[in-house]
């Protein structure tokens, strides 16, 4: 396990170094002349009006919610796909029921216009 995953962890470490290196390099050579106008928040050249952290609308949350449920479903399907040839048609029926139940929720979300961006 460690023998096969270890290189991935090493790759993460080396990629981090690779990302930090140019930052460090440019940190040495670039000019640093911050001033209050240059470092102001850029919103088409106009000063920010009101609080930045506006409240987002609920549709965003509904997408995230549906995504989480379907992502978990997809993850359950991975062991099924790998073991499918051992499991056979009985497992296909089980998965059909599993997805069928989720499709009920999908149809409900569709009917409640959770997929609409209005």
């Amino acid at each position: 396990m460690v023998a096969s995953f270890g290189p991935v962890a090493l790759a993460v470490a080396i990629a981090t170094v690779f990302g930090l290196l140019p930052l460090f390099l440019s940190g040495i050579i670039v000019p640093k002349k911050p001033d209050s106008v240059k470092n102001a928040t850029y919103e088409c050249g106009v000063e920010t009006i009101g609080p930045t952290y506006i409240q987002f609308r609920t549709p965003y949350y509904l997408y995230a919610l549906l995504f989480v449920i379907f992502d978990v479903e997809a993850v359950f399907l991975f062991p099924w796909a790998v073991a499918y040839r051992q499991l056979g048609l009985f497992a296909l029926a089980e998965v059909a029921i599993f997805i069928g139940l989720l499709l009920v929720g999908y149809a409900y979300a569709w009917r409640k216009k959770a997929f609409e961006w209005t």
Binding site: V72, E73, F76, L101, G105, A109, K112
Partner: peptide, 18 residues
Amino acid sequence: ASVLFLVAMIGAIVIARE
């Protein structure tokens, strides 16, 4: 678990929707 997901999905939509 799939029944739970169904319930969670419908429940959360009902609760969160404006």
